[in-house]
Amino acid sequence: MKLYFKYVGMLLRSQMQYKASFFMTAVGQFLISFTTFLSMVFMFSRFNSVKGFIFSEILICFSVVLMAFSITECFFRGFDVFPRLIKSGELDRILVRPRNEMFQVLASDMDLSRIGRLLQAVVMLIYAFITCDIHWTGYKIITVVLMILGGVAVFTGLFVLFAAFSFFTIEGLEFMNIFTDGSREFGKYPVSIYGEGMLKFYTFVVPIALFQYYPFLYLIGKSENMWYMLLPLLGFAFIIPCYAFFRYGLRKYKSTGS
């Protein structure tokens, strides 16, 4: 843990060398998700609700997903840029150091400019909580926390999976965007609006419904099932197979000729 903070310290010092770039990128990040937000506002100015959810409820869902995604992107960036680590040979360096590979990949990069997105998610969430009439209880506060944590876990799993695939194909990686960027993009609405089939897909295959749909139903009072509150914890289990696949890929790793 101490070593991780050392790494973070180094990264911060490196990034501070490029303040202007950092600032611009953060603003850009903000703008990207802000346009998504705007398009939702536009849609809801034509239609008042979708599948029984009103705008402020949808906004809770969107901000939880965005928050989880930007936290993951910020701290697990090493997996996001993993193909670059392979290409540049940095992975070779990681492998000749006496520490766990996952840890080193994790510590190798951090992108604080994602704070632009995170900030927006926080503002949206606060706004949504004010405009939405949720009957707050202690359980519901826990639910919100668990939703965010579970979201980080699921996205982390997806990022690790993405990194694992880059051992086998670099060019073909684009298809993983369906799961990573796609989950962020389409997770802005409760996944049930895409139909029964997609709900099943997002429950059992790419389990984002575990943190953005079921506990969300409990949160806004559409369901009384208390178990839904705990479902995000299952998101942590999702990391296990992803990690196993990463280990498998590492054994097949063939480095780049130098």
């Binding site: 609700s49 599948k51 060019e171 990686l173 369906i178």
Partner: peptide
């Protein structure tokens, strides 16, 4: 591989978008 991956991605993307608009359309 990039081409096939792109086709798969775009197909999924388009499909999801249409499903999203369908939800609004039914509204």
């Amino acid at each position: 591989a990039a081409a096939w991956a792109g086709i798969a991605t775009q197909f999924a993307w388009g499909g999801m978008n249409i499903l999203m608009f369908r939800a609004f359309y039914e509204e």
